[in-house]
Write a protein that binds this DNA or RNA. Sequence first.
DNA 1: CAGAGAAAGTTTGCTTGTCAACTATTGTCA
DNA 2: TGACAATAGTTGACAAGCAAACTTTCTCTG
Lengths: 165, 165
Amino acid sequence: MYPMSEQSAVAERSGTSADVDPHREAWISLTQTHAAVTGRLQEALTAAELPPLPWFEVLATLDRAPEQRLKMGELAEALVITRGGLTKLVDRLIKAGLLERNFCETDRRVSYATLLPAGVELLEEMRPIVRAELAAAFSAKLTVAQADELREMLDSVRSSACGMS
Amino acid sequence: MYPMSEQSAVAERSGTSADVDPHREAWISLTQTHAAVTGRLQEALTAAELPPLPWFEVLATLDRAPEQRLKMGELAEALVITRGGLTKLVDRLIKAGLLERNFCETDRRVSYATLLPAGVELLEEMRPIVRAELAAAFSAKLTVAQADELREMLDSVRSSACGMS
DNA sequence: CAGAGAAAGTTTGCTTGTCAACTATTGTCA
DNA sequence: TGACAATAGTTGACAAGCAAACTTTCTCTG
């Protein structure tokens, strides 16, 4: 990915400040890895003529939820996107017949996004592709235990990032 | 972040397939952590009335490069964005007087994005904010050694993801 | 050397998500 | 109770990035 022949030159510049901040290095890796894996997943889904990755995230998140439904706010938080963004995203999935919007009786402000059978069906179709790509990316060089360790570290960082906003 | 009171219910749904795939769990953590930290960085930069995060990434990447300049293609790859996307991004930075576009003598197809003094200046202004946010997110619960370990794991995953495209 | 093909960048059209404003409902407390 | 604040969600305008088509330049082969 990187031009390896120039890597050392890139890294050894006489920078303006004391170089190689381990946090920044870790952050760069996080960013690039996220982008790389996301790209691969997208690519695989497109190649299989399936909907884009955010659709999968919605379906998978709802599938794991208690009644296969979630408040819009909860779903937005789980996907880490804006509420406004989620409204439109859900609109698209509803238009595709995968989801349904329900309104709460006790609190008429809240609305639920509910998974429909067609959504489950599509999810089952997308899952193997996603699973295969993730397996290729993760288990190629990481054991299951390491993957778990990775997850724990990431969760630590996330909790730090979320806590003090 | 998650509604903890319902977490067990969410996790223990009688799913359609054998639940808790460690890879998927790790991937979810990766996604959410990335989004959370990115959000915090954005927020901090906006609060300081500074340009958005992608601008910092461009400046920081060029600053580390040999002559403080990079081919458009190399830069796009380092930032993991499309070349088309980078063209516009660089256009904006040039319009802001932070970068300069140079053309190669020996190969007139390539063009370089070169950091200008104003860009270095702005970078120095942004760096402490970014550094502080990353420190808050990472060093709160991770030692330096752990951060390094995290980076290594992420790099493994990235190399797997990049290798077979 | 000519011409097909590859490579580097840019441009165009479109999708997607964010931000801020807005509506509607609920909670609070004086 | 009644007004004011808080919460949930939606909407509209806008910005940012992607995909694909296109231009230019280089490379390689016959």
